[in-house]
Computed example of a mutant assay.
Amino acid sequence: MNHYGKALVVMGFFALTACQSASKPETAAVAQDPESDLCGASQYQDYVGKPLSSLNSQRFDHQVRAIPYNSAVTMDFKLNRLNFMADKSGNISRVYCG
């Protein structure tokens, strides 16, 4: 019985390590597809966490849309438009093209 108990513990350990998921890569380390980043959103990822109002004093090369939390926006998709989406606290949570 003693050997069976040890074998079960070892098998349980291996079963749990097999179920472990891989860690999520950092967004900066993920290569951007040039065709899906026509607006240059990858250049503005440092705005994530800043207040949405910080965009008021900035000039951009592309069309920009600031999206407050829980607001209605049109569903038209423009690859060259830069979108800044805010969370409940008014901070930018996502920067993307579309």
Score class of each variant (00 low, 15 high):
Asp33Lys: 05
Thr17Lys: 08
Asn80Cys: 05
Tyr96Leu: 14
Asp76Thr: 10
Tyr47Arg: 07
Arg65Trp: 12
Cys97Leu: 07
Gln32Phe: 02
Met11Arg: 02
Ala29Val: 10
Val48Asn: 03
Ser93Asp: 08
Asp61Trp: 02
Asp61Glu: 15
Tyr44Leu: 02
Lys50His: 07
Met11Gly: 11
Val10Ala: 13
Ala18Glu: 12
Ser89Leu: 10
Ser53Phe: 03
Pro51Gly: 04
Gly90Val: 05
Gln20Tyr: 10
Tyr4Phe: 12
Asn83Ala: 05
Glu35His: 07
Val9Ser: 09
Asn83Pro: 04
Thr74Trp: 07
Val30Pro: 00
Gln63Met: 14
Lys6Ala: 12
Val64His: 01
Gly49Met: 03
Asn2Val: 14
Ala41Cys: 01
Gly49Ser: 04
Ala22Asp: 15
Tyr47Cys: 05
Val73Glu: 09
Glu26Gly: 11
Tyr96Cys: 04
Ala31Ile: 07
Ser21Thr: 15
Pro34Leu: 02
Val95Met: 01
Gly12His: 07
Ala28His: 07
Pro25Thr: 12
Asn70Lys: 05
Lys78Cys: 05
Ala29Ile: 09
Lys24Tyr: 11
Cys97Gln: 10
Phe60Ile: 09
Ser93Val: 14
Leu8Thr: 04
Lys24Asp: 14
Tyr96Gly: 05
Asp46Leu: 06
Gly5Leu: 06
Gly40Cys: 01
Ala72Met: 14
Asn91Val: 09
Asn56Met: 07
Ala72Gln: 10
Asn2Arg: 09
Ser23Asn: 12
Gln45Glu: 02
Ala18Asn: 09
Gly40Tyr: 01
Thr74Cys: 13
Ala29Trp: 04
Leu82Glu: 00
Leu79Asp: 15
Ser21Met: 10
His3Leu: 14
Arg94Trp: 11
Ser54Arg: 06
Pro68Glu: 01
Pro34Asp: 06
Lys88Ser: 15
Ala41Arg: 00
Arg59Met: 13
Leu55Phe: 00
Leu82His: 01
Asn91Met: 05
Gln32Asn: 05
Leu82Arg: 00
Thr27Ala: 13
Thr27His: 09
Glu26Ile: 07
Asn70Trp: 04
Lys78Asn: 14
Glu35Pro: 01
Phe77Asp: 13
Asp76Phe: 10
His3Lys: 06
Ser53Trp: 02
Ala72Leu: 14
Met1Asn: 08
Gly40Met: 01
Val48Leu: 03
Ser23His: 10
Ala15Gln: 08
Val64Phe: 05
Glu35Ala: 11
Phe14Ile: 15
Ser71Ala: 14
Thr74Lys: 08
Pro68Lys: 00
Pro51Trp: 02
Asn83Trp: 07
Val10Thr: 10
Arg94Phe: 15
Val48Cys: 05
Leu52Met: 01
Asn80Lys: 08
Ala66Arg: 00
Ala66Gly: 03
Asn56Gln: 12
Arg81Gly: 03
Gln43Asn: 09
Lys6Pro: 06
Met1Glu: 11
Asn83Thr: 05
Gly90Trp: 02
Asn70Gly: 13
Asp87Val: 11
Gly40Glu: 02
Pro51Gln: 06
Arg59Trp: 08
Asp76Trp: 03
Gly12Gln: 08
Tyr69Asn: 11
Cys19Asn: 09
Tyr4Arg: 06
Val10Gly: 08
Asn83Met: 07
Ala28Val: 09
Gln58Trp: 04
Ala41Ile: 02
Met85Asn: 06
Val48Ala: 07
Asn2Phe: 13
Ile92Asn: 00
Ser42Trp: 02
Leu55Trp: 00
